[in-house]
Amino acid sequence: MINFFLNEENVQIDCDPSFRLLDILRDKFQLMGPKEGCGEGECGACAVIIDGKLINSCLVAMGSLNNSKVITIEGYSKTDRYKVLERTFAEAGAVQCGFCTPGMIMAAEALLSVNANPTVEDIREAISGNLCRCTGYNMIINAIKLAAEQGVGLW
């Protein structure tokens, strides 16, 4: 039995420890926010936050999760921090097809939670594992920068 915290709720699941977290999130918990873009740890569409760190869930084996705290966009979207990102992503035009977006939001949170006042270079670095084919990134970078400015005190 694998025990972990999913969006702040304690959950248990009985599954093969080699199963991918991404599949468990999507198939067992019906959390469709994390997306499969490559399945090889290269695109970041499946990114979630595990114990405060940005991790590609397609590379995480369930067996490695014991007692970890996993946050997906579904949980995160209930927070005040998310509300700021929701606003600044709109303002900066950071969402086109949206397929990379949940992963990008996770990357933004993982950055802002340790660096509430990032430079543009910090942001570039923080989202460099998340591919976006639509936006060219600069508008996403602006959105995260704006969130840091508008969300003073939240991170």
């Binding site: 999507r26 959390l31 469709m32 926010g33 994390p34 997306k35 499969e36 997906t72 966009i73 579904e74 979207s77 990102l85 929701e86 992503f89 709109a90 969402v95 097809c97 949206g98 397929f99 977006t101 949940p102 939001i105």
Partner: peptide
Amino acid sequence: KKDHIEKMSGDAKYIAD
């Protein structure tokens, strides 16, 4: 954008969803 909120929150349904 019309679809901003649903794409941000992960609610938008792509084919695999």
